[in-house]
Amino acid sequence: MKDYLLKFPDAWQFDVNDVIDNGIKAFSRNHREFFNIIKKGVVFSIHGIKDFLSFIPWWLFILIIVLIGCRVSRKKHVGILYGAMLFFIGSAGLWDHMLQTLSIIIASVVLSVLLGFPIGILLALKKDAERIVRPILDLMQTMPTFVYLIPAVMLFGVGITPALMATTIYAIVPMIRLTSHGIDQVDKEVLEAATAFGSTTLQTLVKVQIPQALPTIMTGVNQTIMMAMSMVVTCAIIGAEGLGMEILVATNRTEMGKALMPGISIVFIAVILDRITQGLVGDRERMPNE
């Protein structure tokens, strides 16, 4: 038996590693200024959010969450439970780390919504755009995060900037998908009615399609938050401070006890954010006329 029948022939294998690496390096060198501006902007925003969160006294922060929890769930004990969870995080000595994590999540969720909402609308209205963008969305969700973390780190250096990029790339997908899905799902006859009464395309979008799709869009926001939460530890690998970093450090030292508290804290934050945003969706569905 010939060798090349058993093994994939060497001559047919290609190697583009160096080309890509050098390409990105060159790109990064040539556009240093540009990436620095972005980096400064990101660092400034996230620090701004962090400073704002730190500015709120811890007890007021807990109180606000208790009140919101009571409001959306309509049960007193649920709000108090959320407060107790936050109190636990504080007494585990992780309050500051929590705020750091929260500020990255808030920044990436805001960015995801700001970008994902218009893209989702575009996909719903222009079927051509959908054909192009849908495979890209699949790619963004299935491509292992580290693959695009490396160029992000090469362009922005380690820290919160590539963390924000990676989190947003991962978390924006449900925002786009559910916005588009929500708009697609609007009843055909309702759309016909809007047209028959002389609405322009913009009027139909703003007065009918977006409000009708709002519950689905809010579910998208909720999913985006959850996806962002799941990126916390990954972000730590590229140097983002916060709860993820605590877990990463503990993992490297194989200290179970040190990893457990931040782990539980992440779960608590996820539960609180999830229930509160889901509660907002439910509110919309219960009272369609505000």
Binding site: D187, E189, E192, A194, P211
Partner: peptide, 17 residues
């Protein structure tokens, strides 16, 4: 469409929001 002709639909076509 705004002034001369309007329409009533089989399944009402009302806006639930």
């Amino acid at each position: 469409r705004r002034n001369k002709i309007s329409m009533v639909f089989q399944n009402f076509g009302l806006m639930s929001h």
